[in-house]
Design a protein around this nucleic acid. Structure first.
Lengths: 246, 246
DNA sequence: ATCCTCTAGTCCTCTAGATGAGTTATTGAG
DNA sequence: CTCAATAACTCATCTAGAGGACTAGAGGAT
């Protein structure tokens, strides 16, 4: 089935490349083009939409800049494969530099509870709906370094509630993808400062009321739905983060 | 004088648009095209370099993405005007939201000292060379909120040493530009947590050893030279910062 | 004075190609 | 079987041009 040319479908004033980008975005966010898969070649798309190569490339460039697509010279253009989740350690400096070891995970609790109104709003579910709550620490060498609290929609992540936490790997995002088909595409993080409660301090082998950095993350799938809420705490003295402004 | 076509000047394997971008970058970083000024029109550049419009646009896009140029539809393409410096408060939440008031400045000290080896390395000057050191606090309403220590190369910023601190505005970057012709184009910032010394705490009306966020900034001009080193401290409990990852 | 239109100058979109460069699977020689 | 050459596919660069959209200023109508 040949798709109609884009000329007839776009709104007044809308650019052709923008109309094409919108159509491609729809294929991606709907999941018809799954994460990591190749999209049709540029020559195929220009034939399908009946436009010149430059127009197709402009549409694709738009989606590349949005982080939805990735180009690979000579291979093809691919739907963004998602985050692995190994990125929290960039905020902390524990031990030697340039060490990108994945911290080992120790699950302390995995419970089924009920969403508070605030959490429900973040996850886009009904207040009072079931959520999975995970408490785990992350270890480097022989020291617990980070303490994570994670909340998931129990409906979407049913298989995370049924499987044994001991079977999970140190990284959760690959588990989400393998067990529940949920790919984390982007996340928003907020950094704040606080002090450790008595039980939290015990889990991190630190004194009570020790200063800590608090990183609150909301993770989103490619369609923009929030799929995970996570709050991570670590020793404030190990915290450091660099970035650039222009 | 007509410039030679770019064909004959680029290195083997280098793209035309990359060669053109390099030439434009040289005009900008050398200061021949000053900050805020318009560059020649695309049609003028394509005639000068003897290439097609698309190639010129690709070269300009490269520099726009680097932050060196800014396009304005219908007006022209301009050299990036530089930072105003009003951006440190984005890290802190003092009082009401969405309040973009510029904090008032109180200069406590402006002294001429000698660069430590580490500072000299950052500023790209000789260890032991003269530097200007400024200690100032930034006020919102009736409270001191941030404490800043600033170091400048005394040679480049001679007029900052001679003028009266009382004459300076609340923002220093416009002073640098007006008095010394130094435009801050980009900055790199590192966040850490610490506690306040007794004298620093007194200046911020906080108890000694109160937790603080420490933001260390290196500011660079458009040619990539470090022109200012600044360390800012504020109440850690007011600190918060959000950003996105893909 | 205010509003409008016109115009020249700018960047932006789009076409219809040709050619270059990187990747991968196949095919043929040893 | 192993390895190298090749073919076929991909995205990337570049041309030469037409017309659109936006801005700013000049001039005229109200």
């Amino acid at each position: 089935m040949k798709a109609p040319k884009v000329h007839s479908l776009r709104e007044a004033g809308q650019r052709r490349y923008a109309a094409i980008a919108e159509r491609l975005r729809e294929e991606i966010t709907s999941g018809r083009w799954p994460a990591g898969a190749a999209i049709p070649a540029e020559t195929a798309l220009l034939a399908e939409f009946g436009v010149a190569l430059g127009t197709i490339r402009q549409a694709i460039t738009l989606l590349v800049n949005e982080g939805l697509l990735e180009r690979q010279h000579g291979r093809g253009t691919f739907v963004h494969a998602g985050l692995t989740g190994a990125s929290l350690l960039r905020f902390f400096r524990f031990g030697k530099e340039g060490d990108h070891e994945v911290p080992r995970s120790q699950i302390h609790k995995r419970t089924l509870t009920v969403a508070t109104p605030e959490l429900a709003k973040q996850l886009g579910i009904r207040a009072g709906a079931n959520v999975i709550h995970i408490l785990r620490s992350r270890w480097l060498q022989t020291e617990p370094r980070l303490l994570e609290r994670i909340w998931l929609d129990a409906k979407r992540f049913a298989l995370m509630a049924e499987s044994e936490p001991a079977e999970w790997g140190d990284l959760l995002y690959p588990e989400y993808a393998a067990r529940c088909g949920v790919v984390v595409h982007r996340a928003s993080e907020t950094i704040e400062f606080g002090t450790l409660t008595v039980p939290d301090a015990a889990l991190l082998y630190l004194p009570a009321r020790h200063p800590c950095a608090v990183v609150s993350r909301a993770a989103f799938d490619i369609a923009g739905r929030c799929v995970e809420v996570r709050v991570t705490r670590g020793d404030a003295n190990a915290f450091h983060y660099t970035f650039n402004l222009t």
